[in-house]
């Protein structure tokens, strides 16, 4: 276990160096689907954070009981349980939002991000490390979602959280809140993230 990253490293790595969306390109379905408004994106990020934290802690607690060939099934069932809780909670307290997000909340179950974190980190390391890994990944995921949602909402409607940012004369780019806008925005942002990384690695090479 000596070569495994510590809790603090896991936490820091999740935010930017191993950002789930920009670096690992995981969990694309909800990333594309719910980012047409900032509110939806933040609710989604909250739900994913809750499920990821709980699933990572439970997986880490039972990691010595897991059998290799059954582990994926166990992960999925654990995640499904917490997703049900999150879904019922949203339906009870944020009914309108739960209607807007629709099937994308239950689709967290098959979000590769969570299964990947259970597999890579929680099934091998202690509870504390798993929890901080989950926290770091969730913050990274929330940052990614809100960056996409921010761009799409501002360009698509000229507003953010319902407040007008761009002048009235702005012709709303409706395409940005429609499906094609999601693909194009994420593609360009991924390209930007890659570009930043290339520039940085060149700098370290020169030094």
């Amino acid at each position: 276990m000596a070569d495994q990253p510590t809790a603090y490293e896991r936490f820091i790595q999740g935010i930017l160096p191993e950002n789930p969306v920009y670096r690992q390109v995981l969990g694309l379905c909800p990333t594309l689907a719910v980012t047409n408004s900032m509110n939806a994106a933040l609710t989604m990020a909250g739900a994913v954070a809750f499920v990821l934290l709980c699933a990572n802690i439970v997986t880490s607690l039972i990691r010595n009981l897991l059998r290799p060939h059954l582990r994926i099934v166990i992960f999925t069932l654990t995640i499904a349980t917490f997703v049900t809780i999150a879904d019922r909670f949203l339906a009870a307290y944020m009914y309108q939002m739960s209607k807007t997000l629709g099937p994308y909340i239950p689709l967290i179950i098959v979000n590769c991000l969570i299964i990947c974190r259970c597999e890579v980190c929680a099934s091998k390391q202690s509870v504390w490390t798993a929890a901080s890994d989950a926290a770091g990944q969730s913050i990274g995921y929330a940052l990614a979602l809100s960056s996409i949602a921010g761009i799409r909402e501002i360009l698509g409607t000229g507003m953010l959280f319902g407040f007008r940012l761009l002048p009235e004369i702005w012709p709303d780019w409706v395409i940005m809140v429609l499906p094609p806008g999601a693909f194009i925005t994420l593609g360009l942002l991924l390209g930007a993230a890659n570009w930043i990384q290339i520039v940085q690695s060149k700098k370290t090479d020169n030094n």
Binding site: I175, L188, I198
Partner: peptide
């Protein structure tokens, strides 16, 4: 362009397909 290789260009092409 180098930064767009792989997933990025796929998503942009996917956007045009969605259009």
């Amino acid at each position: 362009p180098k930064p767009l290789e792989g997933a990025a260009i796929t998503l942009i092409v996917g956007g045009i397909l969605a259009l």
